[in-house]
Design a protein around this nucleic acid. Sequence first.
DNA 1: GAGTCGTGGTA
DNA 2: TTACCAAGACT
Length: 366
Amino acid sequence: MHPISKPLLKWFEQFGRHHLPWQATNSSPLGGQATHSDLSYSTSNLQQFAEGKTINPYHVWLSEIMLQQTQVTTVIGYFNNFIQHFPTIKALANASEDAVLAQWAGLGYYARARNLHKCAQIIVEQHQGALPKKFEQVIDLPGIGESTAGAILSISFNQNHAILDGNVKRVLSRYHQVKGHYGQSETLKELWRLAKYHTPNKRNANYTQAIMDLGATLCTRNNPECDRCPLAQHCQAKQHNTQGNHPNPKPRKNKPTRSVAMLIYQNTAGEVYLEKRPKKGIWGGLWSLMECENDEKTIDQAIKKFDKNAKIEQKLSTIKHSFTHYHLMISPIMVTCSKNTEGFRSIAELKVGLPAPVKKIIAQLD
DNA sequence: GAGTCGTGGTA
DNA sequence: TTACCAAGACT
């Protein structure tokens, strides 16, 4: 078996991504704001320190959480905004959940944000405000599994851990032509074995970043650029021209379509009535329009319960919003409103998180 | 093991 | 237009 770490690390020095905002921060008095200097790439944590740059474990942790099931280009803007609002773990711990979700809104998978917030409070209470350095302590934190824990400790402290994210799965399953799809436990077990086999005990941080960079930039799902790949010589998929078989597509299922009515109440000040969603379920912890089943009777009952004299003012065009596992048809309905009690929020200065389609609906109101 | 949990880009 | 999915974790 040909180990990949040596050619991969060499490739990384020249072609890896070295200027992502969470990778290195200038240790200026201002702090927090990552500046992309002209300094050349770094090949080790030590060299990064030598360049006057330092790894911020909080930034690494935050980025790893944001990057779960989410692409780099999407994350960058959210990351920069987030650390501006919450510059330290302590600041994050002291913030309200609504304040955290407000900055996370639009990024999706909101349990990540709720868990991140919980983590910050645990870290302040139990770890003196600093990210713990023991693997067992990190993986015990909510929302952090084996791969994310390994990535955080590898990149932050150059500790010797393997990771197995989507990039690594794709690279290794091609390199070794691993059969089966990633959902199967047998396949996953084999991939973890290979991941640990290839992970070097030196320059671990760079290796972790390198294999993710390879997967993200060359060994992509579609049209991999094998001509530029440092691992092409011994890649089984390349040799047998079976790159397209990895990842092995999951057996497909038909997504159900659900329907819901969303009621729009505006008071005389133009504020909109919003209610906080339960922690469990879709959009947990975000604030949304009042919902009910999308049929005439239920809608009529719902609006009269809120206000006896309420009437439907206008039915807006239905929006189709697709999730990973179902489609949602949203019928927004503007309702007359005589109330002006609590629960109404100014659209202009929202300090809570809104689901993406709800934000779109409200943006269209004026 | 299979479902749940978001969103925007892309083929 | 539709389907798929990108640096997963949890139940």
